[in-house]
């Protein structure tokens, strides 16, 4: 009899352990606590991180998801990881339930047992040049010296794209980010190339000469930065997807942190759906009918978050992160 009891107990523990992984949202609710990771992308090139430090943007998305679940962010703890692999390991082992700032790939998904949410930032490889150089387009870099990080994906892409476009150039390969930043700032090279977020972060640290540097219009490739969570909990996945979407929809509808309370009386369909007169989205995810209104009151809409965390500090325009109606790629899902 004790042996049977033991087998039942062990069996129950196994069921419980797998259920915790499958039901992330329920476990967050039960603990009344969420651990969310962001990625600081340390300056030194480590072969993994190609993006700049988007952890402030990531923290706002963490906050938005926590408010969607709890109605406020009091029960949220944010951990900042130096690079993506550390955040992904913490996700895999269950230390955190959500990570923001991940570069999605099929191999990452299967290796860590995770799924991805919608992009919170579209990064792309760009070129930073001095205004004084007079270079205004990629073709202006013909036979010029270009700085890149040695053996980085942007260095490889540079070679491929310039070959395809028939633009010869000279390469100055740096083994350290700081070294490359210095070479660009003193105009030792005609242009620096890396991901836009990383170049913008570097440029913000040029201090006196920050405003002397601009991006060329061309972009090589597109690298979305997304949320990641352990695979298996559909509701948690939907919650992340629609929380990000609510931030974008709020911007599309002109609903801001400051006017969201007053917007509750709006009678246009999309505002009613977003702010809780239509329960369908809230019901599907088991949320309060006014969950999105609370999120927007806490964080502001996507445009406000972008400006506060990324656009302002890095002097970065919206670019690909503008709404799709304004030339960008940010596109809200229907709230019905």
């Amino acid at each position: 009899m004790p042996r049977i009891f033991l087998i039942l107990l062990v069996g129950a523990l196994f069921v419980h352990a797998s259920a915790v992984h499958a039901q992330t949202l329920e476990s967050i609710r039960a603990a009344h606590h969420m651990e969310c990771g962001t990625v600081a992308s340390a300056d030194d090139w480590n072969g993994e991180d190609v993006h700049g430090n988007l952890s402030a943007l990531g923290a706002e998305v963490c906050r938005a998801v926590a408010v969607a679940i709890f109605g406020d962010a009091d029960n949220l703890k944010i951990q900042v990881f130096p690079a993506e692999p550390e955040a992904l390991n913490a996700l895999k082992t269950g230390t955190i339930q959500l990570a923001i700032g991940i570069s999605p790939s099929a191999s990452t998904a299967t290796h860590f047992g995770i799924a991805f949410g919608p992009p919170v930032f579209y990064d792309s490889q760009r070129f930073l040049v001095s205004k004084r150089s007079g270079i205004t387009e990629l073709a202006g870099l013909r036979d010029k010296l270009i700085c890149a990080l040695d053996m980085s994906p942007p260095e490889r892409t540079l070679r491929d794209e310039m070959t395809a476009r028939g633009i010869p150039y000279a390469l100055q390969a740096h083994s350290e980010q700081g070294e490359m930043d210095a070479a660009v700032a003193v105009r030792r090279c005609a242009a620096g190339t890396a991901m836009e977020s990383r170049l913008a972060q570097s440029r913000a640290n040029f201090h006196a000469v920050t405003s002397d540097f601009v991006f060329l219009p061309e972009r090589f490739g597109l690298d979305p930065v997304v949320p990641a969570y352990r695979y298996g909990d559909q509701k948690f996945g939907l919650l992340i997807e629609w929380t990000v979407s609510a931030l974008i929809e709020a911007e599309a509808l002109g609903i801001t942190k400051d006017n969201v309370a007053a917007a509750a009386i709006r009678e246009d369909m999309r505002a009613e759906q977003l702010l809780g007169h239509d329960f369908a989205t809230a019901q599907a995810m088991g949320l309060a009918h006014n969950w999105a209104a609370k999120v927007i009151a806490a964080t502001g809409n996507y445009g406000e978050i972008f400006q506060r965390t990324t656009g302002g500090p890095y002097h970065l325009d919206r670019g690909l992160n503008a709404l799709w109606t304004q030339g960008g790629l940010m596109c809200p899902l229907p709230m019905r």
Binding site: S103, P104, S105, L222, D223, P224, G327, L329
Partner: peptide, 12 residues
């Protein structure tokens, strides 16, 4: 996306 649309490929 390179021609103003929304279609893009994920990294491979």
């Amino acid at each position: 996306w390179t021609r103003g649309g929304l279609m893009y490929a994920l990294p491979m």
